[in-house]
Design a protein around this nucleic acid. Sequence first.
DNA 1: TATATGTGCAGCCAATCGGTTGCCAAAATT
DNA 2: AATTTTGGCAACCGATTGGCTGCACATATA
Lengths: 106, 106
Amino acid sequence: MRRDIFQAIADPTRRAILVLIAVHAMTPNAIAERFDITRQSISKHLRILSECDLLAQKQKGREIFYELKIDKMKEIDIWLDQFRKIMEERFQLLDQLLYTIKNKKK
Amino acid sequence: MRRDIFQAIADPTRRAILVLIAVHAMTPNAIAERFDITRQSISKHLRILSECDLLAQKQKGREIFYELKIDKMKEIDIWLDQFRKIMEERFQLLDQLLYTIKNKKK
DNA sequence: TATATGTGCAGCCAATCGGTTGCCAAAATT
DNA sequence: AATTTTGGCAACCGATTGGCTGCACATATA
């Protein structure tokens, strides 16, 4: 069973859950009310998100509030950084090239 | 057939392909050499990535060079922005709360 | 104490995924 | 003209996914 954050956010329902929870912690029932699928399905999604360390649970009586562990989202940002760096290098190379051409003209 | 960028980057092979191609455009065969799977599998991945508008093709003779359409990657960044904003608002609320407490003490 | 509510787990199922092999077409090489 | 190289497509297959139902269990409430 592969379980990483990229696989976790691949599902649109799970992405919506993350956005919902980001605003404030919610119980599985409250979340399920927002979707057209069963509470059990939501529960499965919450388990998957939890296994990726994206969620924290806070028990209050018989209710469980799930909240987003926002720090984990940084992992995606870190992955994106690779591309930002590659693009930056590419632009620098382009600048260098343009500079060389300019000097040759002189 | 669902086909969005989040589903596209869910697969680790596809993520690796994106990083490879980001550096410079490559042919399917050249990409396949870097992995332990068949050229046909790579071809499938390239098709999926293309369907998400993540890749551009440049034909040179019988070779096809695939290159990354870096702009499409911004979509992920835009999605992450939601969370950045929510977090910012949360911190501002916290600041406000701390300010109110401070003033009440006076 | 009996009942209602909140939650998670197990098992089922159709659809999708990610790999494979086999094949064909176009371009390059001999 | 025959052969090699490059690349895509189709069909197949086992594993995974994302939904469902049914059930069990703990906690509130009557």
